[in-house]
Design a binder for these strands. Structure first.
Lengths: 240, 240
DNA sequence: ACGCGATTGTGATCCCCGTCACAGGGGGCG
DNA sequence: CGCCCCCTGTGACGGGGATCACAATCGCGT
């Protein structure tokens, strides 16, 4: 089956290839079947808004395919990107569990396939099976862990250079790429968005990247970054 | 019964006065009884270290009495205070659920009575009762919510003045104190620690407080702050 | 009451980086 | 193909606040 946005739809969670390496999807088969009963699978184009900060929680969104940008923003329009979420991740979990408003705004940054579950259905689903409930608790712990790291890097590292270096290293470690002598990072965000991830201005990102290139630490190959001197980058990331 | 540090010990969770208004403690009686089986009640003096960032999770700590300072720190010794935790709060929850290391360091800032539960016992306890497990998920959502706010204020509000104003307002709203015309806040932290809470330097905090006093917005009465112009403070907190 | 360490108050200096302003560049679309 | 819009690159400038260096106080223990 082909979706409106030219993607192949994954019909069943039981047969999903992601099951093995993703946390939430990896439930016992009976639970997965119950999950399939209450899920709505939808395809979204790039730029679709899944939910908005401070909205009442409608339910959870499980990413099957594609990536989603999570951001928080201030009344004055200034926004900060918290995370780029990938397949297997669950969005709106904490809001749906606690009933408090969504913490972040979720916007797809490429075509996505997403499973939606209404809040009520989801809560019933949880309360029906301790294993599932515990998995969700684990998942929430995971999220908590991630956002704690965010706080660490926002609060403790001063220079923008440091935060940028940290971000690049994090990205390069995603695909085991950092094991190679010259890890590559495919840049999927604009300088503006990178700036929003590390809490600085677009110009600063541009300048910092230029600096790194000048010092032979980085190199651009089209929209791909080549990290030529990982050690130097690490040093930048660690020193305060 | 009197503890070594001059505190009266609360023997039983079932009879605990906090049960009504705290989330975690407010479990159905049978669950509470099971909880009592596995908990170890201990009294700590001021300055006791409950656990340290990056340590393997030993278990959870429920605060019955006293307050605990939670902080994260960088290798270079720079530290940031994430939260001052109060009675009824559960510490080390996410680490114990997920098995990942503790996110923060927890140090008592006054004499405390704390219930400790070993990780294994706690996990068994959770898996034994969906209601409990769900409560814990709610609790984790709550924590996630808090730390998201932290990110918001760290990442989006730039001036230190703004963050300090936000912090003071938050403190003053703790005891319904903010309803009074001139709310009072008992300062329990040094300027250094306040600085660590908002990610700035001690000198800046001192200067900002002096400024607020000069502008008649604040007033000190011993170690108590009197907020004389709440509106002005709110304006400082909101403008970016 | 005295003394000493911890905390607070304040000036001087410096530099990072946010902001404004504008000049290429590149790619999608008619 | 050329136009236009969004992205990138770069200079100039200014300000907030980190940092250093002391001085003044506080507060606690003996």
């Amino acid at each position: 089956m082909i979706s409106p946005y030219g993607m192949e739809i994954v019909e069943s969670c039981v047969n999903c290839k992601l099951r093995a390496d993703r946390i939430f999807c990896d439930l016992p088969v009976p639970a997965l079947q119950a999950f399939e009963e209450i899920k709505y699978t939808t395809a979204y184009p790039e730029g679709a808004v899944l939910f908005v900060e401070r909205q009442e929680p409608r339910g959870i969104f499980v990413i099957c395919k594609g990536t989603v940008k999570l951001s928080v923003s201030a009344p004055n329009g200034k926004t900060m990107i918290v995370k780029i979420a990938e397949p297997g991740e669950v969005l709106g979990l904490s809001a749906s569990v606690s009933g408090k408003p969504y913490e972040v705004t979720a916007v797809t940054i490429d075509p996505c396939q997403i499973n939606f579950v209404k809040r009520d259905d989801f809560v019933r689903f949880l309360k029906n099976d301790v294993e599932v409930c515990f998995k969700v608790a684990e998942q929430l712990s995971e999220k908590y862990h991630m956002v704690c790291n965010e706080v660490r890097s926002l609060g403790l590292s001063h220079s923008a250079a440091e935060k940028l270096a940290k971000l690049l290293l994090e990205w390069s470690s995603k695909n085991g790429e950092s094991l190679k002598p010259e890890p590559r990072v495919k840049l999927r965000l604009t300088h503006e968005e990178i700036a929003q991830m590390i809490g600085t201005s677009r110009e600063t990102v541009t300048r910092l990247l230029a600096d790194l290139k000048k010092h032979q630490i980085l190199n651009t190959r089209g929209s791909t970054l080549v990290i030529r001197n990982q050690a130097a980058l690490r040093q930048l990331a660690d020193r305060n």
